[in-house]
Each structure stands twice: as structure tokens, then as C-alpha cells.
Design a binder for these strands. Sequence first.
DNA 1: GAGGCGGCTTGATGTTCATCAAATCTCGTC
DNA 2: GACGAGATTTGATGAACATCAAGCCGCCTC
Lengths: 253, 253
Amino acid sequence: MSMRVVDVERVKDLALFSGVSDETFSAVTAGAFLQKFPAGTTLLHEGDPVDFLYVLLDGLVELEGTWNDKETTLAVLRPVSTFIFAAVALDADALMSARTVERSDILMLSGEALRRAMQTDPRFSYAATLELAGCYRGLVRALKNQKLRGGAERLANYLITQKVRQGGAETFTLPHEKRLLASLLGMTPENLSRAFATLTGYGVVVNGPEVTIARPVVLERLAKPDPLIDNHQPPSAAPIGKAERELWPARAS
Amino acid sequence: MSMRVVDVERVKDLALFSGVSDETFSAVTAGAFLQKFPAGTTLLHEGDPVDFLYVLLDGLVELEGTWNDKETTLAVLRPVSTFIFAAVALDADALMSARTVERSDILMLSGEALRRAMQTDPRFSYAATLELAGCYRGLVRALKNQKLRGGAERLANYLITQKVRQGGAETFTLPHEKRLLASLLGMTPENLSRAFATLTGYGVVVNGPEVTIARPVVLERLAKPDPLIDNHQPPSAAPIGKAERELWPARAS
DNA sequence: GAGGCGGCTTGATGTTCATCAAATCTCGTC
DNA sequence: GACGAGATTTGATGAACATCAAGCCGCCTC
């Protein structure tokens, strides 16, 4: 239930805790849980009050929204990421559900303790501000992506981003099911399949979860990636927060 | 150029400055500009570095995003609102452009001074965190609205929200041109017009900028408003920040 | 290795939305 | 009060997308 030393270190390296005092860190992690959840577990349901800040240490988590019996994926998180931080900060109800996509290790930090810590440790609340600002900008990107681009363009840019994030090799593997990708990109699985078929004409070869971008230049001519929408950050060594991701490439840590 | 006493008071009442020390407040407002801009002025362009936090004291401001020669409106702000706070906090480039829709009074606060203040005054950085959390949740709502609802449904919910925010009377006035509303709702002006025509069948009467919701129950059956997407906050007296707006109704200030 | 389940694909069809074109309306100017 | 630019509306058409229905494929169980 409580944290192992190795996990404590991973959390301490989070951007959110960079520079905070040991007292603050102890206060926040004192009542922390570390839990392992199987795939498909709903951690938190839309509309629920939020008592904990969640930190994904290992695995894959989906954030989703619902209305009128329809669902949509708002984000897919990989380690190390915090989630529902905004709701925790405001002590408000969650606007989205969180669900594990794979078996996941998740750290749960008391919201109450976090709010107290933010009011006493300026380093911590500054880091919290940066973290939230990074999350905010991620959402601005998502909204622009959704409103300005068509389905095939969203997919093309997703593939280019994945390629870069996975190291830049010509061939890479989709990090999860296509059904989930469709929901993330705001389309039906059927249309995602057809969008992949369309991209075949632009040098994209699909083999199950394996994707090869044979002619990057051709694909980019379709995708028109834009640093104000897409965040083509290569995999850097250090565990980072949403803020650092936003600051790349100008001020990479 | 500098601030009048009455303006200083308005700024001090911002949620962002609630509880901050006089020293912090002075430091932040010391190098502040107060400017009046005519309608249609671009205050800041996508991709530009951001040197100031903007505070809309009077008027109307649009935030917009661009890609591939297409534009979309991401938000329309009314007083009193801060904007591009996330970019200021991170000292990053703007992800959206800001443009005045009407003649506007806008306060510009030094980003450098704000970042310094956040690192020294915990009250201030805590308030900043809450403000950003409120903005973040507003965007989550916008993304869900966009991905889960169709055009007519988005319009219906917009109208219901406007009605409530303007006091709840059967008839109210659209706050700006329909062309801008179309862009905000993610559709073309032509389709907005047709969406209004559709809503005629649900008791909505349009007369130029005047809208009457004759049969609210019928319209709501179409709109299915949801507190996890729509923020039906009535006009409260005090000037507020994005955080308070998010906390309503549970913890209204 | 037969069966079954779920994910993925493909085809057919209908709905929603964008685009192009033109008519109408609004409002400020002269 | 006529004029003109821009906003709004309306109509016709096409593109993008969702839905429904099979079919295919991989994978796991028995």
C-alpha cells in the first residue's frame, strides 16, 4: 500500500516537486497510496468529487468524457503523468472519467494535503502553476486540432508525433488499440480504418499495430504539422512534467 | 498610460490577487499599462513571445487559433478576465491570437514581474494555480462540447447558457455578431443560420440579435444541458475569476 | 484444432456539414 | 433618403462523417 523507496524517488523527480522542501514533500506523500490496477479499471467517474491527485507511474490511462450516451477520449496518458490536478486544486468534481488501459501503477496523493502544501510552500505552488499551465496548453492544442483539422489530417499528425516521440525510426508501434485512437482523434473506428486506407496513398503502411511512414515528406505535405498545435518532442531522458513538455525546444530541461 | 485609482481597485478585486500582500500587488502593478484599443485590434498573434499578462477590464476580446488558412474562435472573453496566463507563467509563445471585438480597456502586466511574484508570494501563486485550474476546466468543457455534440445541440446549449448568464429573462441579446458565434461553435455562418432555423421548431424566435426562448422545456429536451459541460452560472455581483466560476454552485463566493 | 469472442475492415447508405452562389437585410455615410 | 460594404439568409451541391451490416482476422479457451 505505501511507497517503496524506488517509487518515492520517481515521484520526487516529478517536475511538480522540483525544488520543494523536504517538509512539503513529506507532508504530501505521508498519506499516499501506491496501487496497482488491472486494465479496464475505472479510477474515477465524471461528476465524482475528487479526493486524490493521481500520478501514473507505470501503465496507460485514458481520460474520457460522456454526454448523451456518447463517449469520447480526451487524452491518453503515459508515465510519468499527473491527472485531474485541476479538480484537486479547486476541490471540485471531476469533469472527466479516468480509466486504466493497461495494468497500471498509480500513486494517489491526498488532495487536502496538496492544497495545504500549495498555500504554504511557494516553490510547490509555483511548480503547480507551471504544471497546470502545461496541461492548459495541451488542451488548447487539442481543441485547435479538433476544430481546425479533418480526420485524415488529425491521423497524419498523430502518426508523425508518435514517430518522433518513439525515437524517429521509420517504423513504430501504436501504443494502444485503434478503437481508442479513433475516440481520441474524434472519429469512429470505421472512419479511422478508412483514414488509414487514405494515408496509404501518402506512403503509410499499416500492419496491425505496426506503422511505417515510408515517405515522410509526402505525409508531411498532407499533415502540415504546426508547432502551435503539435508538440513534436523527442523522448528525453529525464522524467518530466507537462510544463517542460511545453517549454521544449526553447528551454528544454 | 498608467492606472487610475478606480482601475487599481478593479484589478485588486480580481480573484487572482485575492489575499496577496500589498508588496506583491505593488510589484506586479508597478510597470503596468492601461490601454484602450479600438474594435478589431490584434493584441497578440499566435506564435509571438508573450511579455505581458492581459486583463480585460472593459469591452470584448476573442481568442482565436489558425491552421492552414483556417481560423477558429477558441473563446470570447468578457470583463473582468485575464488571458494568456498560461503562456505568461511558462514564458512561452502564445498558442492563440487575441483580438478585440469591441473597443476595450486592457491592462497589461509585466510577465517577468508576475513570474517573480509567483515565486515569492505563496498567496499569489496559490491564486494563480486556482485561476489556471479554472481556465483548464473551461477548456475541458469546450472540448467535450465540441467532440460530443452536434451543431444544433451546441447552439441550443449556448442559448440556454446565455439566457441564464444574462439574468434568465425569456428574451435576451446575443453579445456579438453571429459570424463570431459560428466560429466559436465550430461551424460556418451559413450553418449557424440553418441551426437557428432548426431551433425555430423548438420554440426559439430570432429577431436580429434578439433571441427569445419561448418554450424552455422543449429546448432543453433537445439541448440536454449537463453541468459537466455547461456552466450555467447566473450573473453574480462580485467580480470573479475563472476559479470561482468553476466552483459554482458548490462554493460560490 | 474447433469454436468463439472481440477487434478490425469493408461496403452500402443516410446524415451532417462545408462550399459556392446569389438574394436580402442592416447600418452607417453622404 | 439613396448608396455601399458587410452581415445574414437561402438554395443547390458536394465532401466528410456516422451508422448499419457483414465479413475477416487474430487470439484465446477448451
